[in-house]
Structure formats: structure tokens, C-alpha cells
Nucleic acid binder design. Structure first.
Lengths: 242, 242
DNA sequence: GCCGATTTGTCCGTATGTATC
DNA sequence: CGATACATACGGACAAATCGG
């Protein structure tokens, strides 16, 4: 449940938009009216609208009002721009999810790994390979590197379930920022093996590389997710800086 | 030139971070100090920090301070999360850019097009196909649909140069929000023809579909960009909502 | 463990500027 | 021109997290 006022307003407006009470290409009530509706200050309303704008739900136009630009099409997507665990996305898309751990090891960051990941040389790490099944089809190959300092006590069993759940619920570490880079790469032998690839079909994979930062300001995770193109979709909203 | 105070502060902090004056994993000066430095109110400083956080430059931590999480690695990318024209990205990456217009027509949106693009049925549109060359290699196939109402007067010649320049400079229309969806698709015969594909190499393309909204709150552009994987890279930053 | 200083987070009120109609 | 709408900027108050003594 939202504990802050602007979050409550944000959630309510978002719900109203999704349910069609504020249809696409119409205007939201003016800030003045929203102040009356939610009985709060103008800043608080503006904060909520701002967050909605960043997610592509609305767009403010000077002197006119706040337009709804949400279209229901974009709901049925698998991988969204936000930060979400595999389990969370699977649940949201009503797919059966299963994870098989293919490798689990403790390593130390060397020069080569440091260059690729951004972890400092000498940093103790967990190296984990996992195959993700959606409705029993191997769909994603995940290669994770977690800092053993930031995320201590990881086990094979936790990796089989949800590492994010462990981080947030057991360790109390909050996940804040995630930087992601999307590329398309030729499938390797390892991909072929784990994802049961038929190269005549697709010989490429969608590769998402991400660095995740926790609430202590340090990077605690570097992950490469290799997606079967068929089930891959990545959505984001950009706003132009003037 | 930035006309607003928070933009000035944002630009200055960004520059300092990029130049290494505020190195990665150190703290920015506290809000209190920044208020003194820039001689402004707390809200203004916070606004600038907020914008930097959304671009993955910094991350605020309650009770501690604002960490710099920028790493210089991410500069040399081609397609970024932001809104940028082909010409702009090419210049930023110091590549020679050329555009060949393969098709230019005026059409009217029918049911099928409407379902795919989100334009209303009956909307008058421009249909444009362009091949983008980077350093004389055909790298991107762009299929654009522009609203003839929002973007009147488009010509073959403008399409050969920069449509965005025309929209912003000649029409005075501001580009605000862009929603994008990234997928990986099998290459078609058309791709093969225009991009000189060798299917033994890559048989897939990175496909970015985007809907762009202008300052009048209406969608004026629907574009599908089909990228050669070799030169494709897409970067974005996500922050977790609690 | 407690306390006080520091730092960020939330929220309020107000004034002024500027675009739209 | 005036009314309405959003944009920028300032100020202050209190809460919550962190850290050092």
C-alpha cells in the first residue's frame, strides 16, 4: 500500500486511465480541480502527473492541459522498461514460470571480468547461470554476477526461486536504478544447448545487459539475459529535453 | 542556451560528472551546499538532481547523499533511449550519414493501418521508406508514417535531409514523448533487398517501433526502424517504483 | 543504545511567468 | 484583453534515514 500522498494520487490516476475513465487524447482534470479532488497542494498533484508522464501515460501541454496518451495495447508485453524480476513479469503476463540453475559458483573479479562488468578487480562475486522456462519452453538464458559483499548468503536454492525476493525481503536491500543495454547477437553453442535452438529459424538472440544499483549507491549486480526473439519485447518511453 | 535555472544547474552538474570532477561512486555536494553554490532554492536543486537520476547519472540515497553512478563507457553507443534524429546520432558518433528515400506517398489510414499504428481511420498520412547509410553501409530501413494534418508540407527533398529538423525549425512543433517497443524479427525479402543482407550471417533484425507525440498532445508519427544487428545498440535507465 | 547533527524525502503555501483560448 | 492552464522558483515545516560520538 502506498504510504505517500503523491503515490496514492499517482496510483489512482493510473487506475482511472487504465480503466478508461480518462480516455486517450482527452484532458485530465486541471491541476486546480485535482487539488480539490485529492485535497492536497499543487506540488503534490504535479509530482504525480510528472511520474505518469515519465511512464508514457500522460503528456502535459503548456496552457492547454494534461493529455492522456495511454493506449491499452501496451499491456500484453513481456519485458517492460521498468525493473521487474522474472517471476514478477511471468505472473503479470499469466505465464507459467520455472527456473533451472545451470551453474552456481563463487569467483573473484579479474581484469577481464572487471572490464566487461564494471566491478572492481578483486571483488568477490557469485557467478550464476540460469535457464528460464515460460510455459515449459526454455526462453531465456540468464548469466548473473552478484557482489558477495552486497548480496551475501546466496545459495543454489535461492537462485532456483527468486534472487530479487531474497534481496528485498531477507536482506532489506532496495533496488533503485538499473542501466540496460539492448543488442542483438549471434547465437552461440551454449545458447543452442540450453535454449534448444533451431538455427534455421532464428540464428540471433536479443541480449539485455544490465547493471543494477542498490540503495547504498553501489552496483551489486551485472546480468546478461539472452532472450529467444519469439518471446522478447522491450518497451520504453522517452521524453525530449529542450 | 538553457533559459531556466534548473536546466542550467542540470547542465553544469552533468558536465562536471562527465569531466570527472565528480567521480563515480562518490557523493555530490549536499543539497545545502549546492544551494549555496548556485544561489537558488532547494526545490530547484532537487529538480536538477531528479533529472540526472532519471538519466542514470546519479542516485539519491536517503540520509546519505547523492551518489554518482555515471560511467564513461556508455557514451559510444549509437541508438540511445532519448529522442534523437538519425542525423543527430550520426553526428554524435562521428559517422558519415546518408539517407536514400525509397518510397514517398500520400495515403489515408484504413482499418488495418489504424490497428497497427494507432492513427484513427481516415487520417491522411505520408508513407515514407528510407534507407539509412552509415559510412556508406546500408544499416537501417525506416518506415515512417506522418500525420499530414500535424506535419503538413512534407516533400521528398525534406525526407532526404531531416524530417525532424523540418518539424522543429520550420513548423515550430515540439517533439515531447516517444513510446518505443523493441523486438527482434526475422528478416524479410524487403530487408534483404534494401540492406544487402547475407542471411547466413544474421537472419534477424532489431526492430524499433515508435509512436511520437507532439506538443499538441496528439500522435504525429509512427515509425518502424529495422536495424542491422551489427550497428544496433539501445540503452535505457530504469528506476524502481516502491 | 541513545542523542544530536546532517542529509534526503514529503508536503504545504505563494508569487510570477507564459502559453492557450 | 481577460480567464484559464501549466511552468518555474522561492520559502518553510516536519519526517525519516544515516552516521558519529
Amino acid at each position: 500500500m502506498p504510504r505517500t500522498l503523491y503515490k496514492t494520487i499517482y496510483d489512482d490516476l493510473k487506475m482511472q486511465i487504465e480503466e478508461g475513465n480518462y480516455p486517450p487524447s482527452t484532458l485530465l482534470p486541471s491541476e486546480k480541480k485535482l487539488i480539490e479532488i485529492y485535497n492536497c497542494s499543487r506540488n503534490t498533484v504535479r509530482r504525480a502527473i510528472n511520474d505518469l508522464a515519465q511512464e508514457g501515460y500522460v503528456q502535459s501541454v503548456h496552457g492547454k492541459g494534461v493529455f492522456v496518451i495511454y493506449h491499452p495495447t501496451h499491456q500484453a508485453m513481456f519485458a517492460m522498461g521498468g525493473i521487474e524480476s522474472f517471476k514478477e513479469s511471468a505472473i503479470r503476463n499469466r505465464l507459467h514460470a520455472r527456473t533451472r540453475v545451470a551453474a552456481f559458483a563463487e569467483i573473484t573479479c579479474d581484469k577481464r571480468v572487471s572490464k566487461r562488468t564494471g566491478f572492481p578487480v578483486g571483488e568477490p562475486l557469485y557467478y550464476i547461470q540460469r535457464v528460464r522456462y515460460l510455459d515449459n519452453i526454455p526462453s531465456i538464458l540468464d548469466i548473473n554476477l552478484f557482489s558477495r559483499k552486497s548480496v551475501p548468503g546466496l545459495t543454489f536454492e535461492i537462485a532456483e526461486n527468486s534472487i530479487y525476493e531474497y534481496i528485498e525481503k531477507k536482506l532489506g536491500l532496495t533496488i533503485v536504478t538499473s542501466k540496460r543495454i539492448m543488442t542483438v547477437e549471434k547465437a552461440t553453442e551454449i545458447d543452442e544447448k540450453y535454449l534448444n535452438l533451431n538455427l534455421d529459424d532464428y540464428n540471433c538472440l536479443a541480449v539485455v545487459t544490465s547493471q543494477t544499483y542498490g540503495s547504498d549507491g553501489t552496483m551489486f549486480e551485472y546480468t546478461q539475459s539472452r532472450h529467444l526473439p519469439k518471446y522478447f519485447c522491450f518497451m520504453t518511453t522517452a521524453t525530449r529535453k529542450i
